[in-house]
Design a protein around this nucleic acid. Structure first.
Length: 217
DNA sequence: GCGACAG
DNA sequence: ATCTTGTCGC
């Protein structure tokens, strides 16, 4: 694996990421596609949950695909990006439903080269994408308050590229960053809104659960 | 040089 | 991510 080449590719593609200054105003019927992957040997089970912005659950689906690259930290997008894109296009065609926002398990620009898997999906779909990860790739400083909705900035050099966000009182935080066509403030508000009860937001939990069930049969 | 490192 | 026992809590 030529990591030098992939590293250059990430830096090139990172230039295509668009981050607006204005908050995004979603409509009640806008569709949110949320994705997560479970692995069984070299087979990926991709879960895709569809709900409206208002909260109506449309359904959760799973597709089985092969995965052709190993997991390498910082190069995660090249492993998970293609399977994710595949199921999005498949479900889109099959159900004739078009997403207005994607939420993915992983980072957006909170990445050493500003190009996590959420960015990869962003430049390949031209859609708004939010990355929501369970661990950070970049350092942050300070003590995060224990109350829900507390947050601290995550820096790359001097720039804020993401936030550590507590989605529940006294529960480990998640790491939110944008992948494309949405700003951090909007992303944080949406993740909080979608996390009324648990650490991980509801649509990602459904996608994870569905993929997990299928991976065991 | 060594270790750490999203899923 | 996955491999694992018991255990705590709703």
């Amino acid at each position: 694996m030529d990591l030098k080449k992939l590293s250059n590719l990430q830096q090139q593609l990172a230039k295509q990421v668009i981050i607006p200054n204005e908050d995004h105003r979603f409509k009640s019927n806008d569709l949110i596609f949320s994705l997560d992957i479970q692995y069984k040997n070299n087979i990926a089970f991709v879960g895709l949950d569809i709900q409206t912005y208002a909260g109506e659950i449309i359904g959760t689906y799973v597709e089985k695909t092969s995965v052709d690259m190993e997991y390498i930290p910082q190069f995660f997008c090249f492993r998970e990006g293609p399977p994710l894109l595949e199921i999005i296009q498949l479900v889109q065609k099959k159900l004739n439903l078009n997403p207005d926002l994607l939420i993915v398990d992983g980072h957006g620009i909170a990445h050493p080269r500003r190009f996590g898997v959420a960015c990869w999906l962003g430049v390949h779909t031209n859609l708004p994408v939010i990355g929501c990860a369970k661990r950070s790739l970049l350092p942050y400083q300070g003590n995060l308050a224990e109350k829900r909705s507390s947050s601290l900035p995550v820096f790359l050099k001097q720039e804020i590229v993401g936030k550590v966000l507590r989605t529940q009182d006294n529960v480990k935080p998640v790491f939110v960053s944008v992948g494309n066509k949405i700003n951090l403030n909007t992303a944080i508000n949406i993740i909080l809104q979608l996390s009324p009860k648990y650490r991980i937001c509801e649509p990602l939990r459904r996608a994870d659960h569905m993929a997990r069930v299928y991976a065991k049969n």
